[in-house]
Structures are given as C-alpha cells and as structure tokens.
Amino acid sequence: MIWAAVIAGSLGCYLLKLAGVSLPSRVLDHPNMRRIADLLPVALLAALAALSTLTEGHRLAIDARLAGVAVAMVAHRLGAPFLAVVATAAASAALLRLV
C-alpha cells in the first residue's frame, strides 16, 4: 500500500510539473486556478501541522509535541535554519519526556 502511494503520488506530482512546462499557458492560466494553487499549500500545511501536533490516532491530545513545536517556532523566529528548527522541536520534546 505504501509503495502504491509512493508511485501514484510521485507520478501525479511529475505530471503536474510536466503539464506546467508543456501546455500552452491559456489552458492552465485561469485566475481561480492560480489562486487555488497558491492557497492549497497554506491550507494543507496548516492542517497537517495541526493534526500532527494535536492528535493521537483519532483523539485530540496535548503532550510534549506541543511544547517541542512551540520551542521550535521561537527558534524559527530567531532565524534558525530549517534543520535547526526541526532538531529543536525533537530535542525539546525528548527532554520534556525525560523529566
């Protein structure tokens, strides 16, 4: 099942890239389409972030992840690079679980 998702997802992403460089611009270039493509990442990333911070299976759960994410966002605000932000989240959640 995971392989099917890897292949199908990759194929879909590739075909979108190919369509962009191949199709005449009037096929895709509708203002609504452009707006939706700009807004999709915002909606999807926000939903994914909320779910992976606050749910455990089908339950809402507040635990060390939330603290880790909060500390990481402070690091991000201070200008830390991506890897440092992600590592900060992991390290602070892990530390909190130790105490």
Binding site: A50, A64, A72, M73, F82, V85, V86
Partner: peptide, 9 residues
Amino acid sequence: AAVPAAFLA
C-alpha cells in the same frame, strides 16, 4: 514533534 515543526517551517 519534528514532523509538525517541519510543516510550520
């Protein structure tokens, strides 16, 4: 906790 931090970044 690294997963949501990646999404937010």
